[in-house]
Design a protein around this nucleic acid. Structure first.
Lengths: 237, 237
DNA sequence: GTCTATAACACGATAGAC
DNA sequence: GTCTATCGTGTTATAGAC
């Protein structure tokens, strides 16, 4: 059963995301969100614990759109480099309309305890989806990679993607052209490194990277096991 | 001339930093800061444009402490790896008392337009100091590096340091032991890569990295030239 | 369980008098 | 430079209606 309140919930989300896009995050008041949705403030808080929780929905939608946009590339390309390039620029295309908005609420996602943090338990679904997409980039390609490294590579590529997003958020160039340039430069580098990973001289480097990656994930796993991220600004409220 | 209000300014900063450490960032109200300093709220805002600006001072102090703590390592070590390791762990030692505090206001630093962003114009002094410290790590070492890469390396090392800080902020392990592990793993890798950078097979990789680094700095330079970072949450106020 | 209406609270920030 | 008073906001509380 779709639930009676599901409609109300959608109304609130829709008006929130629209207002966020039109006027920015900070300038959108909860009163305005409620009023636009035709509900009371109290009702909005009945469905969403805080203003920040309204943004979680945005993540999910963006991730879904990214997958759709990446689909053609995954179907048509078989070289690792172009696949990665296509998927990263697909993200750029999908995210472009939200650039100004994203820059504003980005700080919310940066807080370690926030459920919006990409490392939080609450974000595990979109994170797994993103890593999965990058795994497809690799597995569907003809690239030959050292076996140990192959297992870690999707997570490492996700870190690359995070770096791109971080740069993108700070990128004030028109149409975020600089981020495109960054991708154009970074992808061949990654591609070359992956290709060289089986060279004898680089075996030790490769092992170092695998070990580093596992150390990193250790932290992520621990973060996942941690108390449910519940925004708490210190723990005042 | 030390300025008449300099005393008041210091009073405010001192009480702010003490309260931040004792009760956290969010839980410290501007009213409390002003009251502790024995001034009015309005007066506190006369000296500091916003609560966030109070944290800038913390940056400067931390950076100064880091340099002091790194001094012995820079004097005694000559190998690149140990020098880098020593400087990074020195940061960890210096920053440890502020871990809880840092995790809380970290989001403030993450906002692109915030003066507290490590990429902002307002942060250029601490940033240059940090890059300079890493340049000393390299220049004072016996490491032999490709000339083009050598020029870019301090900035790249600064990115590594940023990554470590990012991890540290999210690190909830006791005494941030995981971050230490991360450094133990990452430094040998960086060291090895730097050492291999002159190998013939890696020339193209090396060139890719230099080119990537320049693309990155292009963005930073642009950010530097941008309108003075003035916090503005959207531009409401 | 879903929802309204309205008031109240605490906080960051500002206005304007002195 | 300093103050007091006040505003706008996120969030909570209350008291109920369907």
């Amino acid at each position: 059963m779709p639930g009676r309140g599901e409609h109300t919930r959608q109304l609130i989300i829709d008006s929130a995301l629209r207002l966020f896009r039109e006027r920015g995050y900070a300038q959108t008041t909860m009163r305005a969100v409620a009023s636009e949705a035709g509900v009371s403030v109290g009702n909005a808080y009945y469905y969403f614990d805080s203003k920040e929780h309204l943004v979680q929905e945005f993540y999910d939608r963006l991730q879904a759109e990214h997958r759709t946009a990446a689909e053609p590339v995954l179907r048509q390309e078989s070289d690792f480099g172009p696949r990665l390039h296509g998927v990263l620029t697909a993200w750029l295309d999908v995210a472009r309309p939200y650039h100004a908005f994203a820059a504003k609420f980005f700080k919310v996602a940066a807080e370690p305890d926030s459920p919006l943090s990409p490392f939080s338990a609450a974000s595990s679904a979109p994170r797994d989806a993103a890593v999965g997409l990058l795994r497809e980039v690799l597995e569907g390609s003809t690239a030959k990679v050292d076996a140990d490294l192959r297992a870690e590579l999707p997570e490492l590529l996700w870190l690359v993607e995070l770096g791109v997003v971080l740069y993108w958020v700070h990128d004030s160039s028109p149409e975020q052209a600089r981020t495109r340039l960054l991708i154009d430069r970074a992808v061949p580098l990654v591609n070359r490194l992956v290709g060289l990973s089986r060279l004898r001289v680089l075996r030790s480097v490769s092992r170092d990277i695998v070990s580093l990656s596992r150390a990193l994930r250790g932290g992520t796993a621990e973060a996942l096991g941690r108390a449910e991220g519940s925004a708490d600004p210190d723990r005042r409220r």
